[in-house]
Nucleic acid binder design. Structure first.
Lengths: 109, 109
DNA sequence: AACTCTATGGTTAGAAG
DNA sequence: ACTTCTAACCATAGAGT
């Protein structure tokens, strides 16, 4: 079980890579939240991955949230400029993505 | 050693809180970097803490870096608007902070 | 205060369902 | 492909310096 050390190299096998991504993403979010409550700081993480349509963002408090919102609005425009070959970030998707983000945010807290 | 479970409440004692912050910040950065190399994703973390003058940012690759740069430029302006009672984020500090960020970035990779 | 050490609790890779 | 389990590796609180 587990590995005989940490290799830290790219995991070539698709299913294993996705499994590890999902688990470790959860771990990172948990650790971030822990640090936030232990030290009453503001923190967030941002993940761009092929496994999520939108960048994954988690954060602590209202101010960070507002800053991230601005970042996100900007980044989506930036991405739509840069990712000319990638359907999922064309301008017509921006509004849909924003909507999802708002919903998710309401659920998270 | 360690505690008899994880409490996850705010650490009231200043020195202990700072020590934990420093250790856990390091842990988060390490975990983020691991996830980045294991899965070849782009990720970053952003920390606003009383222990650092500027928000702490770590990231993976060029594109994330560019996006973060935009985010940072925005956030500094936002912060200077909001933190009217806090000297360290007045407008005259913005350029100085940007300079430090650029230096740090060059060192990091 | 900042670094090292290390027992303990926490995270997670791989297996099993 | 997701969930749960758990051995084994890892992070870290508190102690020592």
């Amino acid at each position: 079980m587990t590995r005989g050390k940490v290799s830290l190299a790219y995991i070539a096998k698709d299913s294993a890579r996705k499994a590890t991504f999902t688990k470790r993403k959860g771990g990172l979010i948990k650790k971030t939240k822990e640090l936030i409550s232990l030290c009453e700081i503001e923190a967030c993480g941002i993940l761009f991955s092929p496994y999520d349509l939108e960048p994954e963002v988690w954060r602590s408090q209202l101010k960070a949230q507002q800053v991230i919102q601005k970042f996100r609005n900007l980044s989506l425009v930036e991405q739509s400029k840069r990712m000319v070959n990638q359907e999922s970030f064309t301008k017509e998707n921006v509004e849909k993505i924003k909507e999802k983000v708002t919903k998710k945010r309401n659920v998270n807290q």
